[in-house]
């Protein structure tokens, strides 16, 4: 990393070690949303914050290599569609919109609570992608002064 973009070497090194752990923690929060405090939204924000840290430390170019803005937007839409499909599947499999059609399982196990973990994953995708896309849009807008199409 010879280029002068981003912050100092100390920050960059720390972030390099920290970012995977932060992402892991976010995924943990998403997957355990039905058991412990947290869930799709907080976990998604934590995952997005890891990418935001990368952007702050290394500059937009490096972060964009890891996660393109179009990819983030794609993940966001996919998450939302996934959530909607789960809800509509409830009509066919459970008889009601949003009905919990999967077996409930034992309480307090990781694989329990029917489709709630799946819904959490969908929300996590949506929020993680969405917040990072918003952040990138705002940052790129300031740098380029043009082309930041911000919608959501």
């Amino acid at each position: 990393m010879k280029d002068n973009k981003g912050m100092t070497l100390i920050v960059k090194t720390v972030i390099k070690f920290l970012a995977p752990i932060v992402i892991l923690f976010g995924v943990y929060i998403i997957l355990h949303g039905h058991l412990t405090p947290g869930g799709g939204f907080p976990g998604g924000v934590v995952v997005a914050s890891a990418f935001i840290l990368l952007t702050l430390a290394y500059g937009t170019e490096v972060a964009e290599k890891k996660m393109k803005r179009s990819l983030a937007a794609l993940l966001e839409s996919t998450g939302a569609l996934f959530f909607l499909i789960l809800a509509v599947l409830g009509i066919f499999l459970g008889g009601w919109f949003f009905s919990n059609f999967l077996p409930k399982g034992e309480p307090l196990k990781l694989l329990s609570a029917g489709f709630i973990p799946l819904a959490n994953i969908a929300i996590g995708l949506k929020v993680g992608g969405g917040i990072f896309a918003v952040f990138l849009a705002l940052v790129i807008f300031r740098v380029a002064g043009e082309g930041g199409e911000e919608q959501k």
Binding site: A73, L74, S77, T78, A80, L81, L84, A87, V88, F97
Partner: peptide, 13 residues
């Protein structure tokens, strides 16, 4: 609710 919501995200995709 489902039709317009689904269409919105499909169109953006």
């Amino acid at each position: 609710i489902a039709i317009p919501l689904g269409t919105a995200f499909v169109i953006v995709l």
